[in-house]
């Protein structure tokens, strides 16, 4: 008769008590497992948001203020053309500027220049 009683399935409440007992015994990972998981996390971690590796130099910062390399090449070209015009003094430029000044003021080009001779004379 005892056998018959033992073969009776557990009731719902008894089974729930067993589930509660099992839930009360959570798995405790070993320290070694935590370390392995953390090491994997470290190895698989994506790089943080990109930052410049080092500060840019003075030249690069000045360059960025005027618009970077494209603007700098434009400035250099303009400067080179200016030097060329000054050195070569093409006749077209001289004629145009000289004619314009002469026709509007009646003064020669030399009258518009600073007279160092006068300055030296007044000082002495």
């Amino acid at each position: 008769m005892a056998d018959k009683a033992e073969m009776t399935p557990l009731g719902e409440d008894d089974l729930d008590a067993l589930f509660n007992a099992a839930r009360a015994r959570p798995a405790e990972p070993s320290v070694a497992l935590y370390e392995r998981v953390l090491a994997d996390a470290e190895a698989a971690m994506p790089a943080p948001a990109a930052r410049p590796a080092h500060r840019r130099g003075l030249a690069a910062r000045l360059l960025s203020q005027v618009g970077g390399w494209p603007a700098a090449t434009g400035l250099a070209a303009a400067a080179a053309i200016g030097v060329y015009i000054g050195m070569a003094a093409p006749s077209a430029v001289e004629t145009m500027s000289g004619g314009y000044v002469a026709s509007t003021s009646g003064y020669g080009m030399e009258d518009l220049m600073v007279s160092y001779a006068g300055l030296m004379g007044s000082g002495g």
């Binding site: 073969m7 399935p9 557990l10 009731g11 008894d14 089974l15 067993l18």
Partner: peptide
Amino acid sequence: GKRALAASLGGRRAELGYEDG
């Protein structure tokens, strides 16, 4: 699954502190 558990654990009732069914 629960039915199977209840059936197999029924045989261990005394051991588990469940004196009668």
